[in-house]
């Protein structure tokens, strides 16, 4: 039994790693295509049918590029930083139930690596650790743009992490558990029982914080290309840079899963339709990340901090208070 459990877990880990590494690549393809269509362009067209193999071409390019470690960088930290980003992104995935449990060859599979009873706390914590990737990379790079990006990363981090934690507190109070499976079970009664309807404010706040968390466009400050080049990634080349990239896109997928499960009912009652519904919701949130990138401008770092501390945090606290009073 122990052995079987071990094997099952290892297989799950490998499958998640493979699927989401591939998804990260395909995510870049979709990002390019969607952005292109919104800007009346065609996007990648030449490699493979409709440019589909562009992902493979980029992968080959990243893998075969020379790995440059510039002089003056703190080499050990410089080398470990991208690994932190990618690893923490995937570690956070351990507590996410990707699909309802299903039976495969007479064996019941739970598509979650570890159903820890503090799932949300674990995910938020690990995603918080993910900040060390950009931070260390920026500080080790011996490049002032990278350093700026690291400073911004730290400043932005303490701002949005407060919102993430506070906004999610109200739903947690309602559900009374930190496990995402329990969240899903709480909302199993169909659309009307989604937490979105009882906690719309928390939903919007968490969604906004998710943009800051993944560093996507309205809050694309840490690697804002037109201000600080590629920020912490400026000095990186080849696969080390690719790890940052995979981390960023995997993060986008995982946070989409988290939002869908916490607020939008997850996979519902666990039927096949429910599973499809979860994937659809995740696809929508991922698409929304790309959509805003085409439509919205970036805010300044001070504006983000102003927004987080002076607007969103009071709203989040009020939301918790009101929830508590109503629950009493």
């Amino acid at each position: 039994m122990e052995m079987a459990y071990l094997i099952e877990t290892v297989i799950k880990i490998v499958v998640i790693l493979l699927i989401f590494s591939a998804l990260a690549g395909i995510g870049t393809y979709f990002e390019r295509k969607v952005l292109a269509f919104m800007q009346r362009r065609l996007g990648p067209m030449n490699v493979g049918p409709f440019g589909l193999l562009q992902v493979a071409a980029d992968g080959v390019k990243l893998f075969t590029k020379e790995d440059i470690v510039p002089t003056n960088v703190v080499a050990r930290v410089f080398k470990i930083a991208p690994v932190i980003t990618a690893a923490t992104a995937f570690m956070a995935a351990a507590a996410i139930p990707f699909l309802p449990s299903f039976t495969l060859f007479g064996y019941e599979v739970h598509p979650i690596v570890a159903d820890v009873n503090i799932g949300i706390l674990y995910i938020l914590g690990i995603m918080g650790v993910g900040l060390y990737g950009p931070l260390l990379a920026g500080m080790a790079s011996a490049n002032k743009f990278s350093l700026l990006s690291a400073a911004r990363g730290a400043a932005v981090f303490i701002s949005y992490e407060v919102i993430t934690g506070l906004s999610i507190l109200a739903p947690i109070m309602m559900v009374g558990s930190l496990s995402l499976i329990d969240f899903n079970a709480y909302q199993a009664g169909g659309i009307t029982s989604w937490i979105l309807w009882s906690q719309p404010v928390a939903f919007v706040l968490f969604w906004i914080a998710a943009f800051a968390e993944t560093g996507r466009t309205p809050f694309h400050l840490i690697a804002n290309d037109h201000e600080i080049i590629d920020g912490f990634g400026t000095e990186y080349s080849g696969m080390r840079w690719g790890l940052f990239f995979i981390g960023e896109y995997a993060n986008m997928f995982f946070i989409s899963f988290v939002i869908s499960i916490i607020f939008l009912g997850g996979y519902g009652d666990g039927s096949f339709l429910g599973a499809l519904g979860l994937l659809g919701k995740v696809a929508f949130f991922f698409f929304f990340f790309l959509w805003t990138r085409a439509a919205w401008p970036d805010v300044r770092p001070d504006q983000l901090m102003w927004l987080c501390w002076k607007v969103l945090m009071p709203i989040a606290v009020l939301n918790i208070l009101i929830t508590a009073i109503v629950m009493m």
């Binding site: 800007q39 959509w291 805003t292 085409a294």
Partner: peptide, 8 residues
């Protein structure tokens, strides 16, 4: 959001 969606 609507403008870019319309173009798409």
């Amino acid at each position: 959001l609507w403008v870019v969606m319309r173009e798409m």
